Computed example of a mutant assay.
Amino acid sequence: MSDYTGDVTSGGPAAVRDLPALTVTKVSVGPFDNNAYLLESKATGTRVLIDAAADPATLLTLTGDRLDAVITTHQHGDHWQALGDVVAATGATTYAGREDADGIPVPTANAVDDGDRVRVGDIELEAIHLVGHTPGSIALLYRDPTGIPHLFTGDCLFPGGVGNTWKDPEKFTSLYDGVVVKIFDRLPDETWVYPGHGKDTTLGAERPHLVEWRERGW
């Protein structure tokens, strides 16, 4: 395993993780310290950006003028502030969860449903629809053929809990149950979690706290 930790700061250097078939580059941008992730195929050079959150100049420096797709994890504005500029500069194809697409001002070319395989060149990600933080949030699962699973969770799962549901019990229950059933019940402890803000984690680090999260309601 490389020395990648996933610790980045806004305005600071990117963190680069070298996987057998992909390079994952993480950068923090903008006033809300959003994480953006660039996935690049080693075989073909295909590039996919997850969340063009802010600071288009930073993201375009990262991607260059060749970007194949941008996937937006959900409709909250801090996750798409740079989307229009990035798409205009690169011509990248846009993807987002179907129920959130109308809330993103840049048109979504491909609306994504639960369980869909998002295939961009030789990069394949599984969409996991999670309801509660927004109606159409998606997490994106990359199954490394020779290594651990990698999960990009947007604002649905962080170190220490699920995403914000604004003290709404119904939304919390929906998000919590979705995260447990669709993520923790399906994926192993070594699954690496890349959230929309802050530090990375693993499912194994978070699993012992699931009952605590349910009992506190956030």
Rank of each mutant, 00 (worst) to 15 (best):
V16Y: 02
A36Y: 03
D102Q: 14
N34K: 07
P145D: 10
A82H: 07
D113F: 04
T201R: 06
H209K: 15
D7L: 15
N110I: 12
T153K: 09
H133T: 11
T201S: 13
V24L: 15
T58E: 12
G160E: 02
L83V: 00
T63F: 01
S28A: 15
R117V: 09
A69D: 07
H129P: 00
N35C: 10
L157N: 05
A57I: 05
L130P: 00
D116V: 13
V162C: 10
T108N: 08
L187D: 14
F152I: 04
S28W: 06
I104K: 06
T25R: 11
E40A: 10
A88H: 09
F152G: 00
L49Q: 01
L38S: 02
T202D: 07
V211H: 07
V27M: 05
T25N: 09
A43G: 02
P145N: 05
D116A: 07
V193L: 11
D7K: 13
E212Y: 11
T58Y: 00
Y142R: 02
S2M: 10
D68M: 00
I128A: 08
E190S: 14
T94Y: 09
P135G: 02
P105K: 15
R207S: 15
A139K: 01
P13M: 08
R66D: 05
H150V: 06
D189R: 04
G136T: 09
T46I: 04
N164S: 09
I50R: 04
A96Y: 06
A43W: 02
V211N: 09
G217E: 13
G45P: 01
G84E: 14
V87I: 13
P188V: 11
D78N: 13
G103S: 09
R119D: 08
T73P: 03
D122Y: 07
D177V: 01
L62P: 02
W213N: 03
D116G: 12
A127I: 11
N110A: 12
L187N: 13
P56V: 02
E170K: 06
P159E: 02
S174K: 03
S28K: 07
T46M: 06
P149V: 05
V87Q: 01
G64N: 03
L67R: 02
T134C: 06
R214E: 14
R47S: 04
R186W: 10
D3S: 11
T202L: 13
D100I: 07
G196P: 08
T58W: 00
N110G: 08
P208A: 12
V24T: 01
F152E: 01
G97E: 08
E190R: 15
L59R: 07
G132A: 09
D200I: 07
K167E: 13
S28H: 08
V24F: 03
T173G: 12
V106Q: 10
V86C: 07
N34I: 00
K171C: 05
H209M: 12
D33W: 11
L60V: 05
R186A: 14
Q75N: 12
S2N: 15
Y37F: 11
A43K: 14
L203I: 08
P135T: 07
G198S: 10
V24R: 02
D177C: 08
T146P: 01
K171Y: 05
T201W: 10
A52F: 00
R214Y: 14
L49G: 05
I183V: 15
T108G: 03
P31T: 15
A109T: 03
